[in-house]
Design a protein around this nucleic acid. Structure first.
Lengths: 109, 109
DNA sequence: CACTTACGTAAGTCTACACTTACACTACTA
DNA sequence: TAGTAGTGTAAGTGTAGACTTACGTAAGTG
């Protein structure tokens, strides 16, 4: 739980997660999207993997990374734990407000 | 968003949030639950307030804190953003597994 | 007006961490 | 086998942050 939260608290790591959320990518391809060095990204990937937020698969000399949505389940559980019902209510309120304001259609789960 | 995640990444601050999740408490009463000094807790409360996760109300010399569930909406939104449907599916799977395993009844939202 | 209560804030310390450069390693290729 | 591509790891640096003690401050109380 703590590892997951600390992992996603870092903006660069959230960006990495977005990159591999629906595509499997080698470390190098991920690194080129950022203005920090490749080893820095490698370390971020290590943190994400340690937290269970990405999986690693080897293909020759490359290492392919992909997001592991299950890793976020405990965060979801934390949110539901003591604020579940209240958050649900607030979410629907917010969506209602938004609908009123801009007429956009929203998913209601 | 980042402020919120950084705030809840710290275990002590999550504990504080639990304390004031359904009760309004003065800073001192919160501090006695922990083995760190009162100023440390005061600083944690400052971080939580800055992140919008607690509200502060003054009553004489005391400051009463209460959790602000709305502060977690953006985290909820982050989870839904690119993993919404997948997480939903996984959650129901997990609940199904649990039900099979221990026979407990679970809320299905 | 002193004094106390209930706090926040300042300043300093120690550790965690995001980053860098340099190096090691593994798999493939001529 | 030598060389190259793709990557992790080691070691060092600078900064953020969680903590401490000491002090400041606003609101009640004799």
């Amino acid at each position: 739980m703590e590892a997951v939260l600390r992992a996603i608290a870092e903006p660069r790591r959230r960006a990495i997660l977005r990159l591999v959320s629906d595509t499997e990518l080698p470390a190098g391809s991920i690194a080129v999207h950022f203005d920090v060095t490749r080893p820095a990204i490698s370390q971020h990937l290590g943190v994400l993997k340690e937290a269970g937020l990405v999986s690693e698969r080897r293909d020759g000399t490359r290492r392919l990374y992909r997001a592991r949505p299950e890793g976020l389940l405990e965060v979801r559980a934390f949110l539901d734990e003591f604020w579940g019902e209240r958050l649900e209510a607030l979410k629907h309120e917010a969506e209602g407000e938004e609908r009123k304001r801009d007429g956009e259609r929203h998913r209601v789960d």
